[in-house]
Amino acid sequence: MIIDTLSDLDPQPFDALDPSIGTAGTHSRLLGLERDTRWTTRYSVVHDTEGIAAATPIYLCGASRWLDPAYDPAVWASGREASETWQPRRTVVLAGRADLRSSLHVAPRARTPWVLRALLQDAADVAGVQHVAIPYIFDHDRRFLNIYAGPALRWRQLGAEASFYPPFADLTRLPSKIRSVLKRDLAAIRRHEVVSRVDDWTNRRPEELEADVYLIAAHKARFGLPDHPELVALRMSHWTRVSHVQPLVFHARTAHIEGVLTALLWSNELELHELGLSGEPSRERQAVYAELVFHAPMRFAASHGLTRIRAGLEASTAKYVRGATLAPVFTAVTTMDALLDATRS
């Protein structure tokens, strides 16, 4: 069954299908993404005797170029034909198109060949295009697809999401190698007299928000990622409308360096989002970075009884040596005919 909007489904059963990707996979977040009219959104829904068993997002982009380079399948695909083959209007995107995390939203009990065939047939009926991209999925979805459609899929790992779990800031309960790295951080933070705080994003004054978003946009530009302060503000404003999400902003500073980090508090998780740092590379700047990205969020998580910090795909090594667990994130490209043939065999 194909539906046009998630408003046709109750949030609680939908969110229970696959909570593994956190805020990015919630009913409220995906419903908000439907407001972007540059995309056509549909959902393939399967029911069984226990209720809703699957609700896979199906996206078609109406633009002439991919709106976010991170979601351009030509970057993932190999071969000379990639750029021309993977045009937005010739490609259906399954599972997700934002937040660098996606889910097929299939309940564990429903990971069967007939459910996968039903989802893919719905996608073929909706899209009417030949090429398929399945971006930023985790291993449980990759294994589901590989069991029943593996020969049709070309896979690439796009990174690994870093997550921190308790005991967070309790150095006495951490392995010695991790403890040693964190102690060096703390010594540098003290030496450079880094001070930090965390604020509710929605309580910031306009001039404070302006300074925060400018710092984030400037930081990205320094790394060759064009951005604009208004776009940073727009992205955070979207999260203020997502149910049960509290947008936060961490601040850290010394006499010479300013830093900000946006974050989302949802359920028992803290999700780190966008970073902004002033100044040129230096040990002082590194100390501000360590406080902002590791130590301030860890103290916050510990004091609020959280069970996970999601720290994104970037700087995996720096996060791993500080105790993060890394979960690989994959993408697949294929054709619709190949997918359907594979599930029939």
Rank of each mutant, 00 (worst) to 15 (best):
F14E: 02
G224F: 04
P13A: 05
V46A: 11
D227Y: 13
L292I: 07
W266R: 03
G25S: 04
R89G: 08
I257R: 00
W201V: 02
R80W: 08
L225T: 11
T37F: 13
A218Q: 06
A162S: 04
R241K: 12
P297M: 01
Q12W: 06
Q87R: 15
P135R: 11
P113S: 00
Y71D: 00
A152R: 03
L174Q: 11
T325V: 13
A160S: 14
L30I: 08
A311H: 01
P19T: 00
R344E: 14
D4Y: 06
R101Q: 05
A327R: 12
E230P: 08
G22K: 05
V329A: 15
A302Y: 06
R173Q: 15
L234W: 13
V93F: 13
A152Y: 09
T37D: 14
S20F: 12
A302E: 13
P167W: 03
S163V: 05
Q157K: 07
T56I: 06
L182F: 03
V132E: 02
W266A: 13
G96H: 00
T331N: 01
L116H: 04
A217T: 00
R142K: 15
A127W: 05
H47D: 10
A187S: 11
P328M: 03
E161G: 08
H251M: 06
G323T: 04
T37Q: 14
I3Q: 10
L248G: 03
R204L: 15
H295V: 10
V75N: 09
H304R: 15
H47R: 13
L277K: 01
E81Q: 12
A187R: 14
I3M: 10
R285V: 02
F144Y: 15
A110G: 01
R310G: 13
S278E: 05
D15N: 15
D170V: 09
P226W: 08
A16H: 09
V293Y: 07
L94Q: 08
A127R: 00
T172I: 03
A302R: 12
V45A: 09
L275T: 12
R80S: 12
Q246R: 13
R190S: 14
Q246F: 06
T334S: 15
G259H: 02
A24V: 00
H140I: 05
A188E: 04
I134L: 03
G276T: 05
R310A: 12
R205L: 12
R80Y: 10
T91C: 02
D72G: 01
V329I: 14
R191M: 02
D8P: 04
Y289N: 01
G224M: 06
Q246N: 11
V115W: 11
L326T: 01
A118Y: 06
N268F: 03
H244G: 07
S78W: 12
R154I: 05
A332W: 06
R299D: 06
L272I: 05
A255Y: 02
C61L: 07
E207C: 05
A24S: 12
A287L: 07
S163M: 08
W201M: 00
G22Y: 09
L33K: 04
F138G: 06
W114K: 14
R42V: 04
T23M: 15
W239K: 11
Q157N: 13
A211Q: 05
T202V: 07
T331K: 00
A160Y: 09
S102P: 03
E193K: 10
P19C: 02
R235C: 08
V232A: 14
R222N: 10
G96N: 00
L31V: 04
D18C: 00
V115T: 15
Y214G: 08
A160T: 05
